[in-house]
Design a protein around this nucleic acid. Sequence first.
DNA 1: TTGATTGCAAAGCATTTGCATGCTA
DNA 2: TAGCATGCAAATGCTTTGCAATCAA
Lengths: 170, 170
Amino acid sequence: MVEFEEEKEIFLEHIRKSGLRRTGQRDLILEIFLKTEEHLTSEDLYWLVQKEDPSVGHTTVYRTLKLLTEAGLAREVRFGDNKTYYEHHYDHEHHDHLICTSCGKVVEFFSQQIEELQDSIAEQHGFKLSHHSLRMWGLCEMCSKSEADVSSVPPGAQPRVRVKTVIGGY
Amino acid sequence: MVEFEEEKEIFLEHIRKSGLRRTGQRDLILEIFLKTEEHLTSEDLYWLVQKEDPSVGHTTVYRTLKLLTEAGLAREVRFGDNKTYYEHHYDHEHHDHLICTSCGKVVEFFSQQIEELQDSIAEQHGFKLSHHSLRMWGLCEMCSKSEADVSSVPPGAQPRVRVKTVIGGY
DNA sequence: TTGATTGCAAAGCATTTGCATGCTA
DNA sequence: TAGCATGCAAATGCTTTGCAATCAA
């Protein structure tokens, strides 16, 4: 069984429409991106690709992620650590992010009510909206419980977001 | 009449509490920051400071802006061009941003309803919220009117945001 | 064959850091 | 006088670009 047929077709269609070329590297990068259901940096994806084909360069991964974004398969997100993460975009509901500033956990959520309010605010200001980004930072349940007790931070917890001074606003 | 007394007092108080020192550079940078009611990068502020005192270095402006942020006088914001902007924070209502992707115009807005929805969503997920960032991108009224007609872009319009692929998510 | 694609190295940017000197408290 | 602050230069980290070689159509 072939996986991600639809996504791959969309990619090929985008390649075709834009007069670009299909290459082994692009296929491989797309494949691995689609397989990985996580927020990835270009760097992260680069290392995954390396395991399959060590000849692929950093640059190609960067360029391919841009391509996937243009094709509507990927979406760029930032969590406040000055890195660009990519997540699946095609066939994924639009959503926003809740980010734990202690352990780096990211929760995706969606609120129809907020979406509607946003549209109406944009309209009030005469804006034709193309996209938006809503991020909320705070302590997740686990981290706020163990706030006072440093030793109880989950072992191996790797904060994705190390917020010194907050980027992206309060 | 002395302007910005309150802000200056807050700054001095912060200096005191943190065991830091008051210097001419910090005073000057604060003064100019307070005078400028705009979204400024460290670079922007650096050049304004240069006009008054060419001996002040870039580093000091960076460091002082961090200080002002810690003191609660400034707030960092990002609009999608990978630069950090600063805006006044003290005694300024919390607000979010609408950004025109064509001319770079930034509109500040506030919605009590959205704030409340955010709080309730965070609560549902067990998060103790510390801050958030909501940005919406699109075309402002003027730009969407002149969309088809490139020649009618306002002369001298300096897009603050040059969005190639969107940073910060849709 | 033609022109897009690749990978390397180098360049770009915004931001941060090391360090000797200078200056508040 | 102690040690924080400053400014320079260099380093950093992520991302983009120039370019010669390679490869898809």
